[in-house]
Computed example of a mutant assay.
Amino acid sequence: MNKPLRFAISVALGGAAILLSSCGNMSTGGSGTAFSFDPPAKTPSNPSAVKVHISTSAGKLYVTEGDEVLLATPVGVGTTATPTPKGNFKINSKTRHRRRQGNPGAGYPMTYWMSFYSPAYGMHWGFVKPYPSTHGCVRMPLNAARKVFDMTRVGTPVNVASTQPWDSTIGAKLPVLDDGPLPNPPDSYMNSAKVFEDQEKGKMWNFN
């Protein structure tokens, strides 16, 4: 094999190794911000049979009815220091347009709030990153959060575990979402009623 050909193959293999190693245990189905993600969702035929499953290691959430996955989405979960509680829970309250109550950040929108562990832990819209980054809550992309909110009800079971059965199949096909590079919207917008009006339309500020 001549030197130019060996060099080309070496570069190609090295590049492939970098791409594979950078994916970690997250999906490889493209990338982008959470505001560009709008997951397909199937309306449940029996709302009482709906369940939510969260995989903390993969950073994925699945809504199921029986053996069928109705919706799947990347999510943000708690860090090692502030983990998302694991176990079997139920959604115990829902608030469509909720704001953070305490400081820091009192008044910050936490739209499509669904608590499942205590009043302090829940699923809601929030900036999603491809690694554990929350204080224990489960942050969802905007369109996913709205759909999950509408598909569930108080009493819907929630299972939080290190892994879920769909991580290597459906979950592996989901995109990697990273809102980290996005700027913080101005407080004047985040504290206004318009943020909720926009989010109901699947948009926010100038992100989409």
Rank of each mutant, 00 (worst) to 15 (best):
T134A: 00
K203L: 10
D167L: 14
G14V: 04
A172K: 12
I91H: 03
F35T: 00
T28Q: 12
G180R: 08
N46L: 03
S168V: 11
G24K: 13
V11W: 10
A58I: 06
Q164H: 06
V52Q: 03
Y131P: 12
E200I: 01
V158Y: 12
A193D: 15
S36H: 02
G78Y: 13
F35A: 00
V75I: 15
T84E: 09
K173P: 08
N2I: 11
L177F: 03
F7P: 04
F37T: 00
K90A: 09
L19W: 07
G171Y: 12
K194G: 09
S45M: 06
Y112S: 12
P185Q: 07
T64H: 04
T43L: 11
N88I: 07
T111F: 06
P39T: 02
T134M: 03
D38C: 01
A120L: 13
D150I: 05
W205N: 01
Y62E: 01
G76N: 04
P141V: 00
F207H: 00
G29N: 14
T80H: 14
P141K: 01
G32P: 05
S118M: 10
G122C: 05
L61R: 08
V195E: 08
V158K: 08
N191L: 15
A16C: 11
P119K: 10
S22L: 09
G155V: 03
S22Q: 12
R139S: 14
P44Q: 02
F149H: 08
Y117K: 10
T33A: 12
N206E: 08
A161T: 05
P109I: 00
P183N: 06
G32C: 06
K94Y: 00
W205M: 00
E200A: 02
N2Q: 13
S45I: 02
A16K: 03
S133W: 12
P181H: 05
T156F: 03
L174A: 02
G102Y: 14
S93P: 05
A81R: 15
